[in-house]
Simulated assay, not measured.
Amino acid sequence: MATVILVRHGRSSANTAGVLAGRTPGVHLDETGVTQAIAVGDRLAGVRLSAAVTSPLERCKETAKEITSRQAQSLRAGTDKQLSECDYGEWQGRTIKELAKEKLWKTVQAQPSAVTFPGGESMRAMQDRAVAAIRRHDARVTAEHGDGAVWLAVSHGDLIKSILADALGTHLDLFQRIHVDPASVSIIRYGESRPFVLGTNTHAGDLSWLTPPAKTRRRRSGDAEVGGGAGPGAQTGPQTGRS
Rank of each mutant, 00 (worst) to 15 (best):
99 L>P: 01
113 S>R: 05
236 T>I: 15
29 L>I: 03
135 R>M: 11
175 F>I: 10
100 A>V: 15
63 T>E: 05
34 V>W: 12
151 W>M: 01
121 E>H: 04
73 Q>F: 09
179 H>T: 12
121 E>G: 01
170 T>L: 14
47 V>T: 05
209 W>H: 10
234 A>L: 09
124 R>W: 13
166 D>V: 09
151 W>G: 00
175 F>C: 11
175 F>H: 12
214 A>S: 08
10 G>N: 03
123 M>K: 06
26 G>T: 03
67 I>K: 07
36 Q>P: 03
67 I>A: 10
110 A>C: 11
119 G>S: 05
166 D>R: 09
126 M>Q: 09
103 K>D: 14
51 A>I: 02
212 P>R: 13
50 S>I: 03
158 D>Y: 12
218 R>E: 08
33 G>T: 00
228 G>L: 05
132 A>T: 04
45 A>F: 07
242 R>K: 14
41 G>Q: 00
241 G>N: 15
235 Q>V: 13
143 A>R: 07
52 A>T: 04
153 A>S: 06
1 M>I: 09
37 A>E: 00
169 G>E: 02
148 G>H: 08
169 G>L: 02
107 T>H: 06
115 V>Q: 00
86 C>S: 14
181 D>K: 10
186 S>L: 06
99 L>T: 00
164 L>I: 13
80 D>E: 01
234 A>C: 09
64 A>M: 00
